[in-house]
C-alpha cells in the first residue's frame, strides 16, 4: 500500500489510521472504515473509488463531523474533527445525493442562508450570492421557491450552496447518483473548475469513467481499507492494466484472495 509522504505542509485533509465500527444485526460488528490513511492537497481532486458499502460515505461523514471515528484521527485545514468540529465544518462544503434543500426558500435565499450559517462575513453576503447566482447560472429562477424547480435546477442551487461560504475543501459524496447525463456532465465541469481555483476536492464514486476523467489521485477503498493510492498512471503501472475497471478488479481480487468470486462492480460487498 502506498502511503502519502509524511508531514506534507500543504495537506488540507489528513486522515490517519481512521477506524469506524458499526454493529449490524445480520453481520455483527462491521469495520466500516478500517485503518484508513490518506492526505489531500490544494488544487487536487482526490477520488475515493469503491463499491457500495466500501466505507466511502462513512469516511466522508467522519470528515464532515457528522459521525465520530472509533479510532484514529482526521483533520481538515489542520482542525481535528473531534476537537474543533465547527472549524472543520466551516472549512468545508459537503454535497451528497442525500443532502436536500429547503423547499420553501428561493434559490437566492438558500444561498444567503448557507453563507450566513457558515459564518461568511455578513457585509459580503450579498455580493457573494450575486457571484454564485451568476456563476451557476441560476439568475432566471433565483427568486423561485426551490420546491418548484426541476431537478437540474435544484442540483445547481445545491452545488452553489455547497460553496456558498467559499470553503477551501469540498466533499462530493457520490454526487452524480440519480443525475441524468447532462446534469452529471455539468457536475464534473463544476468540480474541475473548483479544482482549478485551488480547492481541495474529495470526490467519491463507484462509477469508473467519472473517476478516470476527473480525479488527480485515486484511492481504491474496499472493506474499509485502502487497497491502492496514487495517480491513475501510478495504478496502471503497478497493475499493468489500462482501464480503471480492470485496475480496480485487480486490487480487489488481490485483497480477497484466491477464492474470491467477483460479480459485477456493484455486487462486490463485504459479505457477499
Amino acid at each position: 500500500m502506498e502511503g502519502a509522504p509524511e508531514a506534507v505542509s500543504d495537506a488540507t485533509v489528513r486522515v490517519r489510521q481512521l477506524r469506524k465500527d458499526f454493529f449490524d444485526e445480520a453481520r455483527g460488528e462491521v469495520h466500516a472504515v478500517d485503518g484508513l490513511d490518506f492526505e489531500c492537497h490544494r488544487g487536487e481532486v482526490f477520488g475515493l473509488l469503491g463499491a457500495n458499502g466500501a466505507g466511502k460515505t462513512t469516511t466522508l461523514r467522519i470528515l464532515s463531523t457528522v459521525i465520530r471515528p472509533t479510532a484514529g484521527s482526521a483533520s481538515v485545514m489542520g482542525h481535528d474533527v473531534l476537537e474543533e468540529p465547527e472549524a472543520v465544518r466551516r472549512s468545508l462544503g459537503f454535497y451528497s445525493a442525500s443532502t436536500a434543500l429547503y423547499p420553501r426558500l428561493t434559490g437566492r435565499e438558500t444561498l444567503q442562508f448557507f453563507a450566513r450559517v457558515n459564518r461568511y462575513p455578513e457585509p459580503q453576503v450579498a455580493a457573494r450570492v450575486d457571484e454564485l447566482v451568476h456563476r451557476f447560472g441560476i439568475g432566471e429562477y433565483q427568486d423561485t421557491r426551490v420546491e418548484k424547480l426541476s431537478s437540474g435546477m435544484k442540483q445547481k442551487v445545491s452545488m452553489a450552496r455547497t460553496v456558498a461560504h467559499d470553503p477551501p475543501v469540498l466533499i462530493f459524496d457520490e454526487p452524480t447518483v440519480g443525475l441524468d447525463v447532462m446534469n452529471a456532465l455539468e457536475m464534473v465541469r463544476v468540480v474541475r473548475e473548483l479544482r482549478d481555483e485551488g480547492k481541495t476536492i474529495l470526490f467519491s464514486s463507484h462509477i469508473m469513467s467519472e473517476v478516470e476523467k476527473l480525479c488527480d489521485r485515486i484511492g481504491i477503498i474496499h472493506r474499509g481499507r485502502l487497497l491502492a493510492l496514487g495517480t491513475l498512471e501510478d495504478l496502471r503501472q503497478e497493475t499493468g492494466k489500462h482501464y480503471l475497471e480492470d485496475v480496480f478488479v485487480h486490487y480487489v481480487t488481490d485483497a480477497e484472495g484466491e477464492g474470491a468470486v467477483l460479480g459485477p462492480m456493484g455486487a462486490i460487498r463485504k459479505d457477499g
Binding site: T65, V66, E86, A87, F94, S96, L101, V117, N118, H165
Partner: peptide
C-alpha cells in the same frame, strides 16, 4: 444533514 454539515 445539509444543516448539520454547516459551521453552525
Amino acid at each position: 444533514e445539509t444543516l448539520l454539515t454547516t459551521a453552525a
